[in-house]
Nucleic acid binder design. Sequence first.
DNA 1: TGTATTTACTTGTATATACAAGCTAGGATT
DNA 2: AATCCTAGCTTGTATATACAAGTAAATACA
Lengths: 233, 233
Amino acid sequence: MATPKFAEIKQYILARIESGEWEEHSRVPSENQMAELFECSRMTARRALTELTDDGVLERSQGLGTFVAELKSQSSMMAIRNIADEIKDRGHGYSVKQLELTQTEATAPIAIALGLETGSPVFYSVLVHCEQGVPLQLEERFVNPKLVPDYLQQDFTLQTPHEYLSQVAPLTEARHTLEAVVANEHNQKHLEIEASEPCLQIIRRTWSRKGVVSYARLIHPGSRFRLGGHLTF
Amino acid sequence: MATPKFAEIKQYILARIESGEWEEHSRVPSENQMAELFECSRMTARRALTELTDDGVLERSQGLGTFVAELKSQSSMMAIRNIADEIKDRGHGYSVKQLELTQTEATAPIAIALGLETGSPVFYSVLVHCEQGVPLQLEERFVNPKLVPDYLQQDFTLQTPHEYLSQVAPLTEARHTLEAVVANEHNQKHLEIEASEPCLQIIRRTWSRKGVVSYARLIHPGSRFRLGGHLTF
DNA sequence: TGTATTTACTTGTATATACAAGCTAGGATT
DNA sequence: AATCCTAGCTTGTATATACAAGTAAATACA
């Protein structure tokens, strides 16, 4: 047998979800309907649906049906949580200062990271996220204008870039790099720290189905920030 | 049906693996044998074996049989890889200096982290891991003597503590905290860095089935160390 | 002796069937 | 009109069966 029938059914379903034809939370055909469609037994159709459920692609509930799950809702995507939510969850005051929101030309490393040509236009934003008025994260972000054309029209004091990007280009993957660094003078001023203070820097690249969405550098004062949880590589 | 039959079979298998009765890489009964043992059909026994395989507990191969997989081999356990392997994989020279290997009394925070009484004896080791002769990680580790009684008799120039601990107390979980810090003077000397150099500090607690095995503080010079990969929380 | 081949086991795929259990909507009863 | 409850869908569990395909050891053959 070239490829098993249940695998074909899985591919069929995945293709429809990735193309956007079947949207998040929408209902997918029942086991019996899939069985009829593919001219197979219910158990074979069931296997496809069950395995995709195990993979987190679908969600099922007895009596109701099978539905398309949120893309990467709680898994690796939320790896590094939205800083605004994290602060609010602690019951502390959250505020943002927007320092930049412009278009600029991609330098070589940025172009490579975003999969663009060197010198091509990219959107650029710099924000400082504060907890109780104290700077906790400096977010410097380069965004692919082809995938997010309206980035510059947003008001990031109302919604963090991460939230906005999640909406317009559902994220499918993220890669991070962690480093201890000294902030440059400019950033030291914005973070209100001394030159001697070490910072935790997170480089974050995020993907959607269509390519690299953004490249972000998140800098945190070591004295105010700690990252905890499970790490998987 | 109280608990489904396939779930009972899974529990039976898991219990045998966790008790150590079925060792890593050893063969487990075939589908037909399990079916006979539990007086069920092959398909039901098969389901238990298949699901445990999906969970990474078992490994199967057609024609050969089903085997107990390595405990957490590649998953969250190897989150932060063995630094010795990482250096060797880069094709660079690896060396260690052992600075401490003694018994000491648990301070309050260490006792809490290890689940012991304050002042009770704990094993303590300090190592410096070097790449091409350059210090890359200072490993300060507190070990629960109840779970690893022979820790002080080891020679950690031959085998890293992590490797040894994995052998004597198979790890089931690990939790990490990441922070950017300034090393104290003592550690600065051992890492051969300037006072101004930021360091990436990883606090790592590891569990086995019987409790907290060890509490480690891993300090890396920011200029020489970068942590990459997927982070999940 | 050395090489095929068979045999017996394993897991993998697929089907037809049965009943259990959860949910919803519409119809019967009160 | 409000309530119950049944009919018809859904997924969940379980079985019996069949054949495909991979592995290894025993067997037959040259």
